[in-house]
Design a protein around this nucleic acid. Structure first.
Length: 564
DNA sequence: GCCGTTTTCGGCCCGACTGTTTTCAGTCG
């Protein structure tokens, strides 16, 4: 039972209770718990089996702790099973229809007694919905359209997929009439690995004009709403964009509010309440006096805090650290001096080692590692590869190619290449390319054995996840982190936009163990060398500083794996 | 249902927009 599965159970429980009409604060409590569980670095199942006190976790009280134990021990939650018998599963699907919430669904179900999508579609066609109290032709139409789209809901965009649209919108809006300041906010600004929609905040002297201009963006496929200060559109690629325009004196508080995360903003709001203050998108108020609203930094200053970078705003301790003025100074793209995981055309890559080296120097790198994938039968190829790197290195003065290799970790934890071959490389990456479904204890033991191999330098994309497609392998991270630390081994943050592995939450956790990182592109082409910015994003979200990342070092000679 | 060095009871974010109304409930972020 994974944390995701447990979180899903509480989410469904909350949704069904909401439809049932249960106390909304209770519903919110379940949703808070669900969100908390999703963000936990460690498996709840293990915590239950180790007899840990779950009520120590925020948003988990006695009742929910008991329910978690029930889920872990029996695989299900009786309370949810009962509710599911009371309401057909289609009701949960209806919640995903834009503009349709629990109250309407309750009314629909109580009056029309449908149990499938098809039945509800039929009722819409017969215009039975518009006659209900609180419904009308427009809502009926919305439901009919929403039912058709049900199946394709729930997809978030990879950050890198949303990025070109964000850039294009930014460029377009920059020249909107009367616009003063402009910023992409939301999860995009927080550099989250996926974004559900784009949130954009602007200030202008005449907001209505900006809104009107916004809705005329050429790639709009649907205008959901367009008021005096706010508008929502959907783009051709079905990416939703929420836009908010305020007066310039409110820009800071609006930007803060719409950057989120929700958890961060709510926590600040609670802090304001404790100080008898009120915070909203227009400012921080003491009675009617606005204490801070022009710039984001003003708001944090008003609380006596350091400025908090958007990447940290997830309510994972950043507010407390800001108060104590001990926030990390986050790593920046410019701190990266080398890319240590690149494929040439000796294996998966498109380019020759020389082409890569030339391009890397143009990017300003001081050294790189070429790390092609070799198997045990590639002996001749390996000799040729090593010779090629030596030959190129003899021509450089202020640049160095480090000899790397990517190597399979076999099921028993040994490496595919023998020690004699491995000893010819400066840096050896282990990857798991088979037996993904081993049980957690065996998978962890396999990786730990590889970590103990003196020839292995680090594990590449440790969880093997593919974002939104594959959860990856199951590991006991406490054991893994201890093994990495004990054996002086490192963690990679792989920058491929659909990997970003190890992720932010685990990176933050690993840092507590004193583990160092490498941020690598694992590029297969020259273009992909620029993916490294996504890895840096993830590192920033994981609270990493320059000093935590080995390829921020100016000199390759002081890298721990360089022997000579 | 969770939370709390002012609380173990009484709070729990709040403003904009839409579509239904005839002054406001529901939904969303």
């Amino acid at each position: 039972m994974t944390n995701k599965e447990i979180a899903k159970i509480f989410e469904e429980l909350a949704q069904l209770l909401e439809i049932k009409g249960e106390n909304s604060f209770k519903v919110r409590a379940y949703l808070n718990a669900s969100r908390e569980i999703n963000a936990l670095p460690y498996s709840l199942e293990s915590m239950v089996k180790d007899g840990k006190d779950l009520t120590k976790l925020p948003n988990i009280g006695e009742q929910i702790a008991k329910k978690i134990e029930e889920i872990v021990n029996s695989g299900k939650l009786e309370k949810l099973e009962k509710l599911k018998k009371e309401f057909p599963p289609v009701l949960l699907d209806l919640l995903s229809i834009e503009g349709l919430g629990a109250k309407h669904i309750k009314t629909l179900y109580e009056n029309l007694h449908f149990s499938t999508v098809e039945e509800l579609q039929e009722l819409a066609k017969e215009h039975k919905i518009r006659t209900l109290k609180g419904f009308g032709p427009k809502l009926e139409d919305k439901i009919a359209k929403g039912l058709k789209l049900l199946k394709q809901e729930g997809i978030r965009f990879l950050y890198a997929q949303a990025e070109p649209y964000a850039n294009e919108l930014y460029k377009y809006l920059q020249i909107a009439p009367t616009i003063i300041r402009l910023e992409i906010a939301g999860s995009f600004r927080r550099k989250k690995e996926t974004v559900g929609d784009l949130d954009i905040v602007a200030s202008a002297s005449e907001p209505q004009k900006v809104i009107e201009y916004f809705t005329k963006f050429p790639k709009v496929s649907q205008i959901i709403s367009a008021g005096d200060t706010r508008s929502t559109i959907v783009l051709e690629n079905s990416l939703q964009v929420d836009f908010r325009v305020v007066k310039d004196e409110h820009f800071g508080s609006a930007l803060h509010y719409f950057t989120g995360s929700k958890a961060h903003v709510l926590e600040i709001r609670r802090m304001a309440q404790d100080l008898n203050l009120k915070i909203n998108e227009y400012g921080l108020f003491s009675n009617d006096k606005n204490l801070a609203s022009k710039d984001e930094a003003d708001i944090y200053r008003a609380f006596g805090m350091e400025y908090i970078e958007p990447e940290l705003r997830e309510n994972r301790g950043e507010l407390k650290s800001a108060k104590n003025k001990i926030l990390p100074k986050l790593i920046e793209l410019g701190d990266i001096k080398a890319d240590m995981h690149i494929y040439s055309n000796f294996s998966y890559g498109e380019n020759s080692i020389e082409e890569i080296a030339n391009y890397a120097q143009e990017m300003g790198y001081k050294y790189i590692a070429i790390t092609d994938h070799f198997g045990s039968i590639d002996t001749n190829k390996i000799e040729q590869y090593l010779k090629e790197i030596d030959k190129l290195n003899s021509t450089y003065k202020d640049f160095k190619i480090i000899k790397g290799v990517e190597n399979d970790i076999l099921e028993d934890g040994s490496l595919a290449l023998n020690n004699n071959t491995l000893s010819k490389f400066d840096i050896v990456y282990g990857v798991i390319n088979s037996n993904f479904k081993l049980p957690k204890n065996l998978q962890s033991a396999r990786l730990i054995k590889a970590i103990q191999n003196p020839y292995l330098s680090l594990i590449s994309h440790i969880s093997n996840r593919v974002i939104q497609q594959d959860e990856g392998i199951e590991l006991n991270y406490k054991e893994i982190f201890n093994a990495l630390k004990a054996n002086n081994k490192y963690l990679e943050i792989n920058s491929q936009p659909n990997r970003l592995d190890i992720n932010d939450i685990l990176a933050k956790e690993a840092k507590k163990y004193g583990i160092k990182f490498l941020i690598n592109s694992s590029a297969k082409s020259l273009e992909e060398l620029h993916y490294i910015k996504y890895g840096v994003n993830q590192a920033r979200r994981g609270w990493l500083e320059k000093g935590d990342v080995l390829n921020c070092l100016m000199e390759f000679k002081i890298l721990p794996f360089i022997s000579s």
